[in-house]
Design a protein around this nucleic acid. Structure first.
Lengths: 215, 215
DNA sequence: AAATCCCTTAGGACATAACCGAATTTCGCA
DNA sequence: TGCGAAATTCGGTTATGTCCTAAGGGATTT
C-alpha cells in the first residue's frame, strides 16, 4: 500500500509533484488527476468512462434517497481501485474526502481487461456483502468497533489510525447518526480502549477489547 | 428467466425429471443436483469447488454472528447464478430455501472464464451495494416495499408474487425481526396495498403506493 | 378427518438509537 | 497567538423497532 495516507497537502504543492508521480503503465503514461476535498469524481447516472486507482487521499462511494438520507457503501484509501460498474452507467456517486490524487484508467478498445478486473470486482463484492452483516445485524458499538478494526487493517499500522472522513461520513457508512458515532467513540475513549490525538487521529489502546466487541 | 419458480415438488418426481433437464453445455453435460428445503449447498470456510446456476427453486446466502444473529446477504431465484468468491474459500453459507435443482459448473483447468464471470460478479456487487442503502438508511416499511418490488421484478410477474422464504428469512435479509416483518405486511394488507392468497403468495393491489414508499 | 407441529400474528413492556437544541472544542486562517 | 466558523459533543426527550409471551392459523402426517 502507498505510504502517503490521508495527508492534507495544499493543492499547489500536489500539482508540482505530478511529473514525478506520473509513471508509465503498460508503456503508456496514465494521467494523474487531482481532486479537492469534497469534489465530485463521478455522479450517479453518469456514463462510465474509466476506473481509478488512488495514489494518495481517500474517496467515498455513496447513494442518496430523495429526502437527503445518504448511505456510503464504501471508503477507498490510497492504493485501492474503484469505479467498476455492472453496466455503462454509474450507480453511485464518488467524491474525494480529502485532497486526492487519482490515476485514471480508460478502457482501451479491443483490449480485454476482465482477467485483471475480476478479482478486484470479487473483492468489492465480498466487502459489500460483509458490510451488510455489520449494518444489518450489529449494534452501534459493534459497528464502530468493526469499522475501526477495518481501518486499522487497511492502513497497515495496527494501533495508529488516521480517519480522513468526518463523523457524518462514518455515520452514513455504518447506518448511524453523527450523535451516536460521537457518543460511542467517547465511551470507548472513557473506557481506555481508544486514545485520541485530535479528532481524526487515534490510537487503539486495547485491540483485544475492540476485537471482542465485533464477535 | 426459467418458468419454474419456487414450486414445492416432491423430491422423487424431481429425480425422475433429471434426464430431461440435464442438457449439454459446451458439448459436455453439466450435472444437475437436487437439494431439499433447508439443506446446505456450501458452508463458510469451505474451499470453493464450483459455482452454480439455479434450475428451479431458491437459495439464501448468509452469514452468522457468534450469538446466532444472521444476515442474509442475497436471495437467488431460478435462472440466477451464485457461488462466486474473492479467493479460494467461501465467505458465506448457501442453503436451499425450498427443494432446489442446481446446475454445477466446475472450473476447467486452463480455461479462462473471467470474461463471462466479470459481468455476473459486477451485478452481484452492485446489488449488494444497493441493498446496503435499504438496510442502512430505510425504515421498516420502506425496506419491505423495496423487497416486494425487487421480488416482483425478478419474477417477471408485475403484481403476483410467490415468496419461497419464511418471514424469518425476510427479516434476516432486511435487518428486521420477524415481528416487524409480519406487522408491516399486515398493515400493507389492511391498507389494501397487498392481498394475500396464503402466507407465501400475494398480489400487489396498489403498485404505485408500494413504489412511492421506497422513494 | 383429526391431531400435531411449526410458522405466523398479536399485544404490551422495554431498549436502543434517533431527534432536537445547545454548549463546547477543534482547526483553518489571519 | 488569537479569532471565527464549522464540526463535534453533550443532555434530554421521543419514536421506532426489539424482546417476550401467548394465541391463532395452515400445512403435514397419520
Amino acid at each position: 500500500m502507498n505510504a502517503i495516507v490521508n495527508t492534507r497537502v495544499p493543492f499547489e504543492i500536489l500539482t508540482s509533484l505530478a511529473p514525478q508521480l506520473d509513471v508509465p503503465n503498460d508503456g503508456r503514461p496514465v494521467p494523474l488527476s487531482f481532486f479537492h476535498a469534497g469534489s465530485e469524481i463521478y455522479a450517479q447516472g453518469e456514463k462510465v468512462a474509466s476506473h481509478y486507482q488512488i495514489e494518495f487521499g481517500a474517496v467515498r462511494i455513496y447513494r442518496l434517497l430523495a429526502d437527503g438520507r445518504r448511505q456510503i457503501t464504501a471508503f477507498h484509501l490510497a492504493g485501492e481501485m474503484f469505479g467498476f460498474e455492472a453496466d455503462l452507467a454509474h450507480h453511485f456517486f464518488a467524491e474525494a474526502i480529502v485532497t486526492t490524487g487519482l490515476r485514471t484508467f480508460r478502457p482501451v478498445a479491443g483490449l480485454d481487461r476482465s482477467r485483471e478486473l475480476l478479482p478486484l470486482a470479487l473483492r468489492c463484492m465480498v466487502r459489500a456483502q460483509e458490510h451488510l452483516l455489520v449494518v444489518g445485524r450489529q449494534t452501534a458499538i459493534e459497528r464502530i468497533a468493526a469499522f475501526l478494526i477495518d481501518m486499522a487493517d487497511r492502513q497497515g499500522e495496527l494501533t495508529q489510525i488516521e480517519l480522513p472522513m468526518s463523523r457524518q461520513d462514518i455515520g452514513d457508512y455504518l447506518g448511524l447518526t453523527i450523535e451516536t458515532v460521537s457518543r460511542v467513540l467517547s465511551r470507548l475513549r472513557d473506557r481506555g480502549v481508544l486514545k485520541f490525538h485530535g479528532l481524526r487521529s487515534l490510537e487503539i489502546r486495547k485491540p483485544e477489547t475492540l476485537r471482542s466487541l465485533c464477535e
